[in-house]
């Protein structure tokens, strides 16, 4: 039987091409990744799914050397501004955890990779951001 895959978070969509989906306020257009009770920006009550651009640039980062037990360090935590203006947080991947290798403003693209499987063999798929091909 073919191994199943499941996204790490509900706002990551794997098919046909991996991308993030925000809940977009139908009144003001604010975008959120979590389950919503209303809009924090305008108080609106209705939302529609909105795909988030997979291209973006590095707005800020921190190279984390101390974390909870079980979390592999160092890793690069990145704040990414997607091309459509949505802000996303994820690890910066395919880059050494070294400030000399990281440039604020560098162009990035969304990538996915497996982060373990459960007892039934379902593979968990996470997302991160990697340097965009120049």
């Amino acid at each position: 039987m073919a191994a199943e895959r499941i996204p790490l978070v509900a706002y990551l969509v794997l098919e046909p091409e991996p991308h993030l989906v925000a809940q977009k306020c139908e009144t003001c257009g604010a975008r959120f990744f979590d389950r919503r009770n209303g809009c924090g920006s305008c108080g609106g009550r209705s939302f529609e799914p909105a795909p988030v651009a997979t291209a973006g640039h590095l707005r800020a980062y921190s190279i984390v050397h101390r974390a909870a037990p079980g979390v592999a360090v160092p890793f690069v935590s990145a704040i990414v501004e997607a091309a459509d203006g949505t802000t996303v947080r994820a690890n910066l991947v395919e880059v050494p955890a070294d400030p000399a290798a990281i440039r604020l403003g560098m162009p990035l693209r969304l990538v996915t990779y497996p982060v373990g499987a459960d007892s039934e063999g379902t593979e968990c798929i996470a997302f991160g951001f990697a340097p965009a091909a120049r």
């Binding site: 790490l8 974390a67 909870a68 935590s77 990145a78 968990c124």
Partner: peptide, 10 residues
């Protein structure tokens, strides 16, 4: 589906 600490940033 699991802790995102250290995967989706910090």
């Amino acid at each position: 589906v699991r802790s995102v600490d250290g995967i989706l940033g910090t």
